[in-house]
Design a protein around this nucleic acid. Structure first.
Lengths: 99, 99
DNA sequence: ACAAAGTACTTTGTAATACAAAGTATATGG
DNA sequence: CCATATACTTTGTATTACAAAGTACTTTGT
């Protein structure tokens, strides 16, 4: 593996918005849709699609429930997600320090 | 500025391939086209467009010359590029450490 | 009670981006 | 010379990002 293996950077995580989501979840473990949207200043539609992509990759799960009478989506980091995020961070460090 | 200001991440630098180029140049200062292409395992076309984008942003300059009889493009990090890269790194740290 | 406005999302259309295949120009080797 | 190679750039296509519009409610005002 080369010192500049930027190709090893997980694209699913590297995306600007998704990196924000993963960083948030890495310390919070779970967050509801609205908190994420506000913390990251993403539009509803944008957050929705990014969460879907992370979910497709198996990095997060979503739980649907109700907060009072309003629907609530909670985004939870999975074990695979945590591992992938850690691996991403390692790879990034390696890249930025030139291997 | 929020703790999760992923929006502050410079997109021109954040792109996977361009991050590789900037990381490479940050320690090498200058590199020729072929070295970059090989080190980063990018296709010719791909590297060409990414370098053009960095050049448009004023982060690198290209110098055309000849190595023997072959044309040679050298990519050089500009002052603005170095500043932008440093700022990017700072912002990234902030994001990954949650502010 | 009814309409208007708000909340919490998802789906969809469009604009930007990434990438590689094809193209250009020149050089070298048989 | 003709084929192959090098050093790129341009162009076509596929993926991605984003926000506007849509759905399904709930709350608020009158």
């Amino acid at each position: 593996m080369s010192a500049f293996d930027h190709n090893a950077l997980d694209d699913v995580i590297h995306g600007r918005a998704r990196l924000g989501i993963m960083a948030y979840l890495s310390t919070a473990d779970a967050a509801d849709f609205v908190s994420l949207r506000d913390a990251l200043a993403l539009s509803d539609g944008n957050l929705s699609t990014h969460v879907a992509k992370l979910e497709d990759a198996g990095y997060v799960r979503t739980k649907k429930s109700f907060a009072g009478k309003k629907p609530q989506t909670t985004v939870v980091l999975t074990e695979a997600g945590r591992r992938a995020y850690t691996a991403y961070l390692d790879q990034l460090k390696r890249l930025l320090q030139r291997g």
